[in-house]
Design a binder for these strands. Structure first.
Lengths: 189, 189, 189, 189
DNA sequence: TATGAATGAGGGTTCATTCAT
DNA sequence: CATGAATGAACCCTCATTCAT
């Protein structure tokens, strides 16, 4: 009678998946994309096979790590999109993305073109932080809060600059300073 | 006495060194830091052993590649430092660095923290593009052309943003647009 | 006394055993011995643990698959042994074995010495198709229908030739042609 | 002046290549296709990388092993083709192929369809033992020494039978007995 | 008893570096 | 000095088997 509909995943499987995801996020952030899968498994306290079961390839694991963060960010973007000031919304989301990515060496590497393609990772998983950012940008431009001519690609590049490792992760002031520079530069003249 | 006075390198050795350096610059730029040493040797038309002889490690080869470019840039910085407008000098050098690094995937990766540490590579080789940029920055700040509080690290981060692969290398306009944003953001308020 | 009298297996256990056996036969035949146990479980619609419970190792599963077919063949051999013409009986059984094994990639691989040892698999399970074939061979030789000197091992080798994948499974003619060659070659001179 | 024409391989490289080839032939023969590359390297007394350098994939190594033997056989076939009796030539070559393959478990597995595809391995390397056998077969059929209707595929299947591991490699008599059966069966009626 | 998640050894391959030629 | 073959650790991934649920 129960047939074979995809049953809910077992509790331990879910827990391990989460453990792996957390360990991977940390490992990618700390050591970059070149961290061995083996090391991720070790940190998660599981066997390498368990990692592979949940995430068939290393790339898919990275995609999942990004997705995990992105889910939160997507929601945040939607909330901001509903506020009154498009310019403020865009810049707030921009800053949030930066703070999110801070310390994440893997993310920075991916943005820089080393290792995996970040955009395809996001697409693969169906997330759309990019889309949200794009929309917020357009709204801000329509409202005159961001100078015309600036493209979405430009914004992404500037983002990657704010995420650069040159900015001391422990130094919140530095991060904010760089963000401020970009923000002021983006404002309409 | 006859021991080991640093004899002048043989002519063929010098030529090979140059061949390797050129091939490496191209390879790192095109394929990123993960390009095999073997491939660099192939492009240079020499054996892998020759590469290793001149540059004991892959990292030292990358450092040498950077250094090579840096030598040119250092001279350019000195010329700019002698001009009248410190602000213009700084921004010109900044833009020049960006254009220099454009298309250089290895450089972008290194800036993003993937692979080798760019600063230690520079230090190792004794070059001082960083020092020049630092000095130009300071002069510009003293002249009130760059807002106070901005640190050298901030500038490097913003540079890496301008070098991000998101900016289409073929699209000069895009590159300049991003540079303009950063420049305007850096200007004193 | 209440210890462990070999209780009759539960109905669902028996059914699952049969499901696994059928799926395994198909899988081994189609994909060869290297088919993953996981895949067999999937085809059977059971968990991998269920497969392992009934057949502790992959090899024992393969042995069981062979045994299953062998049971039918043993009966057939006994029927043929009761007929009048020993030569005809032997050759008929020989052909039957070939047709049985046709298309069975796993069987062919096993005969060729890849993967599992077929003889020990049969012995392990107590089946005796080999014994039947052996007996029929001896009778045929005694009747002068098969040349002397031919051993049982020779016959098995020739069988494996008739089962070779070079013979197009879809081409009944080819199969029969090869069988005919072996039959004529085996006949007394 | 010498430019860069493919220079003759170094002496040690040639020696190692030969060592690997010999070790591989032995290993494949003894242990079958599933023998680890690592084990082949161990037997050859070289590192695993050396094996990979000479033979980029395991399959290419197997192909080379076959090719090595095939080169000899091709020459032998050509010699036989020049003799007077096409029937004798065909059967002699057939027997030679069998003796060649005797004991070679890897070859038998490949013929049985496990592991690598033997035909494509041969083709890849440009050898054409198959072609030679085919030609000898046709000539023998034209001369009336082999019954009509028999195809090349039939012959290959029967060959694989003669190579079956059931035939004790140490028992030359057994091998010859099986070959005789096939030969007599193939003769025109 | 059934499940399927977990295990972890082992697979083939790559590549920076060394060293005999 | 130049060469490029040799090295072998390390990589990611597969899968037969075990065991908690």
């Amino acid at each position: 009678m129960t047939g074979k509909p995809p049953r809910a995943p077992r509790a331990d499987a879910r827990r391990n998946r989460a453990l792996v995801l957390r360990a991977a996020a940390e490992a990618f952030a700390t050591d970059g994309l070149s961290v061995p899968v083996h090391e991720i498994a070790r940190r998660a306290g599981v066997g390498t096979g368990t990692v592979s079961r949940h995430f068939p390839t290393k790339e898919s694991l990275f995609a999942a790590v990004l997705l995990d963060r992105m889910a939160v960010l997507t929601a945040r973007a939607d909330a901001l999109a509903a506020t009154e000031d498009p310019g403020a919304a865009f810049f707030a989301f921009f800053a949030e993305l930066i703070h999110e990515g801070t310390d994440h060496r893997g993310l920075a590497e991916s943005l820089a073109g080393a290792g995996f393609d970040i955009e395809s990772a996001a697409v693969e998983a169906g997330s759309d932080v990019s889309g949200r950012l794009h929309a917020l940008l357009k709204a801000a431009q329509d409202a005159g809060a961001v100078r015309d001519g600036i493209t979405f690609a430009d914004v992404k590049a500037l983002m990657s600059g704010c995420l650069a490792r040159e900015v001391d992760p422990a130094d919140t002031g530095a991060r904010d300073r760089v963000i401020a520079v970009v923000r002021d530069g983006l404002r309409a003249t």
